Computed example of a mutant assay.
Amino acid sequence: MTEKIYLKNPYLMKLNAKIIENDFKDNKFHVKLNRTLFEPNISGGQFGDKGSIDGISVLNVYEQKDDIIHVLKDLPKSKEVEISIDWDIRFSNMQQHTGSHILSNAFYKLYDFDTLNFHIGENFNYIDINTNLLNKNIIEKIESYSNRIVFSNFEISTYIVDREYVSNLPIRGSIKKDGDIRIVEINRLDFCECNSIHNRRTGEVGLIKIINCYKIKENYRVEFVCGIKALKDYQMKISMKL
């Protein structure tokens, strides 16, 4: 089983590890390490980390049962390797994912709207909300509430609880797995099952901006950007004339 260091310390950028297995298929090496900083691609959720192993670019990262597999074009010469992640991508991913929790919490707390699913894309993200009514007034209240949470700079914590203890927590959303559950908590304001990386404080998320919303069958899709992506979106839409 690969030790998932990224869950323990998402701010660590470099780490030494050991290759314990590799498989050559489709003209690429699929490498398993004893431990890793690379968060894999999450199905329907977000893209994984980018970076390198001994200077060789990691083309893809995926989860295989309890192991994390790193796809490389070449195989490192030594079994003892140095792994390094792209910090800009890692930090942006944390901003977008933590921002999605804050936004989903706002919809739930203010209007009792559940989040059905979410996606973190290259240029923008979205969450699908189980409501057939959204208007300008609702969106403005959701944005204001969400950004107050950000600017309050609340602590974010992650921890593991067993299935029996989960009933003692006000979990937002349903529990999707048996056994031990990983909880992401925002300062007693939001509790959610999640197996991904997050910022340590809400202030790191930066601005949360809803950029579009439209109906998807009986629900609404809400597109948004956070932090670095919000800045890039603003820069693209408004250019200063110097």
Rank of each mutant, 00 (worst) to 15 (best):
E155G: 09
N212D: 15
C194T: 08
F29T: 02
G55Q: 12
D112H: 15
I69A: 12
T131M: 15
Y220C: 10
N34I: 08
Y126L: 01
V58H: 04
I68T: 08
M240A: 13
E82R: 10
N117F: 13
N41P: 06
Q46A: 09
V222Y: 00
Y6E: 03
C194N: 05
G206H: 06
Y62T: 07
Y220A: 02
T158N: 14
D114V: 05
E223M: 04
R221M: 09
Y126H: 09
S167N: 09
E143H: 06
N168A: 02
I175V: 13
M94F: 01
D162A: 03
D190W: 00
K136N: 07
I238E: 04
A106P: 04
Y111H: 11
R201G: 01
M94R: 05
S43A: 15
V222S: 10
N27V: 09
N123V: 14
E143G: 02
V71K: 03
G206V: 00
K4H: 05
L242D: 09
N60S: 08
K79I: 02
P10W: 07
N168H: 13
H30R: 12
M94D: 01
I238Q: 08
F107Q: 06
K79L: 03
N34V: 10
A230Q: 07
I171S: 11
V71A: 01
I56E: 08
I83K: 03
D88R: 14
N199H: 11
E223K: 02
N93Y: 03
S92I: 03
S146K: 04
C213K: 09
I175S: 05
G55F: 08
V205G: 04
L7Y: 06
G44H: 13
M236I: 05
L116E: 15
F24D: 11
I19H: 03
E218K: 12
F224T: 12
V81C: 14
N168C: 05
L116S: 10
M236F: 11
K232E: 09
P76Q: 06
I142D: 00
D190Q: 02
F113N: 04
R35L: 10
I216Q: 15
G203Q: 02
S196T: 13
K4C: 07
G48P: 06
Q95H: 08
Y165F: 12
V222H: 01
I20T: 09
Y6V: 02
D180N: 13
Q235S: 04
D190E: 10
L116V: 13
K18S: 12
E3V: 15
M13Q: 11
G51E: 00
C213G: 03
I149T: 10
N187D: 12
F118P: 00
G51N: 04
P76I: 08
T131R: 15
F151D: 07
R163S: 09
H119Y: 14
Y214H: 15
